[in-house]
Computed example of a mutant assay.
Amino acid sequence: MLRILLTIVLPLALPTVVYLLYVTTVEARRVRAAQEGGPVPWWVEAPWPWLVGGGVLLTGLTLGVMALTGGDAPGEVYVPAHMEDGRLVPGATRPAPTAAPGH
C-alpha cells in the first residue's frame, strides 16, 4: 500500500496541492495589499521565482533520494550484455572476483 501511495498517488496529487497552496498564498497577499491600499508585492504577480525554486528543490530532492537508494552493492562488477553460444545474455552485476591466495 505504501508503494502505491509513494509511486502513484503522491506524484499525481503533489503538484495540485503545491499549486493550491501557491494560489491561496498569492490571493491572500493580493487581498491584504488591496485592504491596506499599498502596492502588490512583485512576487505575487510573477510566479517564475516560485516555479524555478520549486523545480530546483524537487530536482535536488530527487537526486539525493536516487543517490541514497539506487545502485548496486559496493564492490560489484558490471558485466555488459554479450553473446554466449548464439544467445544474448543480458547485462548484470556480479560480485567481484576475489584474488587467489599468494597473488
Rank of each mutant, 00 (worst) to 15 (best):
A81I: 04
P74Y: 01
G55S: 07
P74Q: 08
A67P: 03
E84S: 14
P95N: 15
L63R: 13
L58I: 08
V89H: 10
P90H: 12
G53H: 10
D72V: 02
T62M: 13
A73M: 02
G86D: 15
T59C: 13
M66H: 07
L58F: 06
G91M: 04
M66Q: 11
G91W: 02
A67W: 03
Y78S: 08
T93L: 01
G54T: 15
G70P: 00
A96N: 03
P95D: 12
V65R: 06
R94K: 11
V65E: 06
P95S: 14
G71Y: 02
M66P: 00
T93I: 02
G75K: 04
A96I: 00
E84P: 01
L58P: 02
R87K: 11
T93E: 02
A96M: 02
V79K: 03
L68T: 07
P80N: 09
H82R: 15
L88V: 12
E84L: 10
G55R: 02
R87G: 11
D72E: 09
G86I: 09
T59D: 11
D85P: 05
G70M: 12
G64T: 09
L68K: 09
A81D: 12
L57D: 10
P95C: 13
P95I: 10
M66I: 04
V65L: 11
P74C: 03
L68H: 09
A92K: 07
T62E: 11
T62A: 15
T62Q: 08
G60P: 06
L58Y: 09
E76H: 10
T93G: 03
D72F: 03
V89D: 11
M83A: 14
P80V: 04
P90I: 07
P95F: 09
V77F: 02
R87S: 14
P80G: 09
V89N: 14
G54Y: 01
E84C: 13
G60H: 09
A96C: 06
M83L: 11
P90Q: 14
G54L: 12
P74F: 00
V79E: 04
E84W: 08
G71P: 00
A73D: 05
G70I: 02
V65G: 05
R87H: 14
G54M: 03
R87Y: 06
G55P: 00
G75M: 06
V56D: 05
V56Y: 02
A81N: 13
T62H: 10
G64M: 08
L68N: 12
V89E: 14
D72W: 01
P90W: 04
G75L: 05
A92V: 01
G86E: 14
A73V: 01
T93S: 10
V56N: 06
G55I: 01
E84Y: 10
D72N: 08
G91D: 06
D85N: 15
T62G: 12
A81Y: 05
P95R: 15
P90T: 10
L88P: 02
G70D: 13
M83K: 12
L58A: 14
M66G: 06
P80Q: 08
V79W: 00
G64Q: 11
L68I: 01
M66F: 05
G55F: 01
L57Q: 12
G64V: 07
G70S: 14
L63F: 07
A92P: 00
P74T: 04
D72R: 06
T93Y: 07
